[in-house]
């Protein structure tokens, strides 16, 4: 009994050490790419462009034209959506595909660590690298446009800080499932592009869900997409949101999708070991 407990403690310490070393190494790698990361961050301007169009619509038609959101609420929503998107970007399918083609997967498989953790740590390290730049961009927007500046209440900020990593986990799980298709088809990345379309239009990245017609909104809420952008963004923006339902949806979808991704990995490994690649 005692032995098992000390084994568990040693296992946890080992896991923590791997996490620490992987994260710090990945962070060092990402720092080498900081120029690229700034550009990637800049290429996430879509919510800001959409903010432009929606503010234009609000200016000419009033809040009625924007599903009841005032100019200020619109500004906060899209800025929050921008931040949420920055910290939920997932590209594992591309790295995985590249690693498979370059033959890096085989050496990874021969090490006593499941390869998925390398990708997770790369994403987390990239988010840390991105953070100062995103803050600078926000500061710039607030400077130009002080009217939209706001400080979320501490409970809301805390809730958002929990919801954003959860949204990231969900998005990662979805893409990981598609990534596992790499074992069967060379076109898995194309499927990811298809998956991006409902994500783009249903997540709230291009329009606040409040502006959707009732039927479309109900449909969207039944999918995992709005919980990955709209929900954390509205938390951050301080708008009225069903907090309990949002967290429940995030948790539920993750709990459903992670096991699928796990079995996908198991099946993929079986296929890989039959074919070699």
């Amino acid at each position: 009994m005692t032995r098992r407990r000390s084994d568990a403690r040693a296992g946890a310490a080992h896991g923590l050490r791997i996490a620490r070393v992987l994260l710090s190494t990945q962070y060092a790698t990402m720092l080498e790419y900081r120029a690229e990361i700034v550009l990637w961050a800049l290429s996430g301007v879509l919510p800001l462009i959409m903010l432009g169009v929606w503010s234009g619509a609000e200016a000419s038609g009033g809040p009625a034209a924007t599903g009841g959101l005032s100019a200020q609420a619109l500004g906060r929503y899209f800025l929050s959506a921008f931040v949420v998107r920055q910290f939920t970007i997932v590209w594992v399918i591309h790295s995985f595909e590249e690693d498979t083609l370059a033959g890096r997967l085989s050496p990874y498989l021969l090490q006593p660590l499941a390869p998925v953790w390398r990708y997770v740590s790369a994403h987390l390290a990239e988010q840390v690298t991105r953070l100062p730049f995103v803050l600078a961009m926000l500061a710039l927007v607030f400077l130009i446009h002080p009217a939209v500046a706001w400080l979320p209440s501490p409970p809301r900020l805390l809730a958002a800080l929990v919801a954003i990593p959860m949204a990231f986990a969900l998005r990662f799980a979805i893409q990981w499932i598609l990534t596992m298709l790499c074992f069967w088809t060379e076109r898995a990345a194309a499927l990811e592009r298809l998956m991006y379309i409902p994500y783009l239009f249903l997540s709230g990245l291009v329009a606040p869900l409040e502006a959707y017609p009732e039927g479309v909104r109900a449909f969207a809420l039944a999918t995992p997409f709005p919980w990955m952008v709209h929900f954390p963004a509205q938390l951050l923006a301080g708008a009225e949101v069903p907090v309990g339902r949002g967290f429940a949806a995030l948790l539920l979808w993750t709990l459903v999708l992670v096991p699928i991704g796990w079995s996908g990995w198991k099946l993929g490994m079986r296929r890989h070991s039959a074919l070699g690649a």
């Binding site: 190494t25 060092a28 790698t29 080498e32 033959g103 890096r104 085989s106 050496p107 990874y108 021969l110």
Partner: peptide, 13 residues
């Protein structure tokens, strides 16, 4: 396993 034509070292570090 060492493969002469493939590498596992992190390229940029």
């Amino acid at each position: 396993l060492v493969m002469g034509n493939k590498q596992q070292l992190i390229w940029d570090l």
